[in-house]
Structures are given as structure tokens and as C-alpha cells.
Design a protein around this nucleic acid. Structure first.
Lengths: 201, 201
DNA sequence: TCCATTTTTGAATTCACCTTCAAAATGACG
DNA sequence: CGTCATTTTGAAGGTGAATTCAAAAATGGA
């Protein structure tokens, strides 16, 4: 029998297992048995903790999103220079490669968000928070006179997050030319035009 | 019995039915019976024409993509002024609303493209062709002295398509603030900065 | 150590979908 | 109008996954 664990530990395990299963089989293709296999348990054990698979999937998506966002915030908190903040934040929004699990998980939501309200709300809320994050960086830089914004900070922030999202899709779809470095440079090109700063540091 | 049709007519029907079924149930959630229902046939009849459902799904995605792209090209062909071309093309890349079937279909590919090579190739080729489309507009405008590009036309074109993609996701996910008009304005903001033209016509 | 409780298993059942196929319906063509 | 090839149906069979549940195993506490 699989090692027994406390209720909360097991739920965390299952959320992780569900995350991997979603990446492997797609949000509409995951099966109870996939999650069980990833967790090293039987289907019955999964069902004992989550009688409804769809609830587990939502929790897994939610946890993945929060982790992604928190990671970016933590990275950001170590910096003070607005230029450096902007450069580092752009990079941290891109997948490390075509297999990056965090971005692959988020990408699974793209289509489902149009069909499923819960996923739509989750994805929208992540987008808005990332926009706020960029907006704070832009406003700070503008206040310090480092940035001369070509448009409102909200507009620029929305576009920056949008570009990250889109290149995340391109990279996980294995575009033969656009990888993490190329995407980074493309977004920086916009960021330079929008901030009037050459963003070298 | 459902009206009998010629082989090629029926295949076109089935591709349309599959398109609707994908939008309704997701690319990984579609079932033979969903397609049959959309087509007004039984599962057996669908199988008679497409013994392998996944082939039909690929054809449906392919057809949807081609239609989307051809539509944009046709719209573009009616214009000569680079400014107008750019403005109209940006608009034609956005969904008309959160239910826009063409964009919802494309969005279904986002996640699957990371798992399925065929879908990855399809999506990548659409992206590249749209980039070329924009690049031609930008190069023409620059040659005529109407645009003063802030970066290489390839860079700007890639970013424009990326922005369209991303806002397509936001809109179909029913972002409470970002609708077609707002997204259009956001992309125009970038296009103005990138072309040095206020894009009023 | 033993007991009570919680967790997990594994087998049985049910359900839903895919697949196959014989028979029926349809339409083209002589 | 009759024949024939094509298309469609509908039922039967097979497969695999979800669900249920009694029994077994693991754990913590007395």
C-alpha cells in the first residue's frame, strides 16, 4: 500500500499530481486514473480525498497560477532599480523552454476559459494582477524620471502582459525560431519604445 | 434518415460540425457523438466518412485557420493606403465578441499545441503567415515614408500578431473591461509608437 | 501493545463511448 | 421502373473509465 499521509499532505500531493496530469493530457483530457498514477495511488484513494475530479482540477490550476505569480513577485522584491525590475520581470514571465511546466499549465486554460466560467475568472484575475505589477514598476520609473512613458502606464502594462502570454504560447508550441531569448528581445523592443529607456543595466 | 449527400458535400458538413463541436466541448473533450449531433447524423455515419476522429478534428482546425487567414487577406486586398491597411488588419485579427467562433476555435489549439506536434505546426504556420502579412504592410508604409519604424519590421510584425493573439484570449475569457474596442485601442497604441504615425484616417 | 480512526486497496458494478455490421434507405443511371 | 452502388441507420458487442464499497492496512493515542 502506498505510504499513508496526513489529510493536508495528501491533498497537496494530489494537487501536484493533478497539475502534472493536466500538462500531460490536457485540461479536458485528464482522467481520474491519470491523476492516481501521477500520485502513485489508486483511483479510489483519489476519490476519497476529492469526490469530484473537476474540483481537484480547479484547485490544481489555482495553485499553479498562484505559484507562478508569487514567484514573480518574490523575484521582483529583491530589486530596487526600476530598469532592472522591468527587465527581470519581463524575463520571469516567459517560459524557460518549450517544456516549462508552469507556462504549459497556464496555457491549458486558454481554450477552456472560453467555455468554463471558473477558468475564465481564474485566468482573468491572473492577468489583472500581472498588469498591476507592471503598472507599479512603470509608475515608479516615471516618477523617478527614469522612464518617459509613450502612453498611460495601464496601457503599456496591459500590452506587456499580453506579449508575455502570447510568446508563452509560441514557445510551448515549439516555434522553430522564437525561443525564450528571442521572445525576451521582442518584448524588450516594445518596452524600450514605451519607456524611452534603452533598458541596459 | 438524414438527407443523403455526396461524398465531398458530406465531408464539408462534417468539418463544419466538428468545428462547432470543438468550440462547444474543447479539442480534448469532443466525442464522436458530439460531432454526429452537430451534423444531424449518427456516430456510424460520421465514422463511415472519417474512420479516425482525430483526423477530422485536424481537418476542422486546419479549415478554420485557413478561413480566418483568408478572410483577413481578402479584407486587406480591398485597400491601398498603408495606414488604412494597418488599422483594418488589426481590427480583423480580434474577435467580434467573447463568442466569436473563429477565435474560440483557434484558442482551443493553444494548450494542445504544446502536446500535439500537428497542432503545434498548424498554429505556428498561422502565426508566421500573419507576421508576413503585417510585415508587408509595414515595409510598404516605410518605403512610402508614411511610417517611421521604431524597430525592424519583423520585430514589430511579430509583436502585433502576438498582441492580437493575447487579446483574443482575454476577450473570449470574458474579461470584464477588455472587449474588442478596448483591445483594438491597446494594439493601436503600440502600432502608433512603432510606426510614428497617429493612424487616424 | 492494543484499539479506534483514518486511509487505501481491489473487486464488483455501472455507465458511457467506440466500434462493427447487417439491413434499410437513397439516389444515379440505364 | 428496376438495378446497383453508396450512404445511413440502429442494434449488438467490446472496452475502458467512473463509481461504490467492504475489507485490509496504516497510524496515532491510550
Amino acid at each position: 500500500m502506498a505510504q499513508r499521509k496526513s489529510r493536508s499532505d495528501r491533498r497537496i500531493d494530489l494537487i501536484e499530481a493533478a497539475r502534472r496530469a493536466i500538462i500531460r493530457h490536457g485540461i479536458d483530457g485528464v482522467q481520474l486514473s491519470h491523476v492516481a498514477e501521477e500520485a502513485g495511488l489508486t483511483s479510489g484513494a483519489v476519490l476519497y480525498h476529492y469526490p469530484d475530479l473537476s474540483e481537484l482540477l480547479v484547485e490544481a490550476q489555482h495553485a499553479g497560477m498562484e505559484r507562478f505569480y508569487e514567484q514573480r513577485l518574490r523575484r521582483l522584491a529583491t530589486l530596487t532599480d526600476p530598469v532592472e525590475k522591468l527587465v527581470v520581470t519581463i524575463r520571469s514571465g516567459l517560459p524557460t523552454g518549450s517544456l516549462d511546466p508552469d507556462v504549459r499549465l497556464l496555457n491549458e486554460l486558454g481554450g477552456a476559459a472560453g467555455r468554463n466560467r471558473v477558468y475564465g475568472v481564474l485566468l482573468t484575475s491572473l492577468y489583472d494582477r500581472q498588469v498591476s505589477m507592471y503598472q507599479a514598476i512603470l509608475d515608479t520609473g516615471a516618477a523617478l524620471g527614469v522612464f518617459r512613458l509613450s502612453a498611460g502606464s495601464l496601457t503599456i502594462a496591459r500590452n506587456l502582459v499580453a506579449l508575455e502570454d502570447a510568446y508563452g504560447y509560441r514557445i510551448t508550441a515549439r516555434h522553430p525560431v522564437i525561443g525564450p531569448d528571442e521572445a525576451n528581445e521582442l518584448i524588450l523592443s516594445y518596452a524600450r519604445a514605451a519607456t524611452g529607456n534603452d533598458l541596459a543595466h
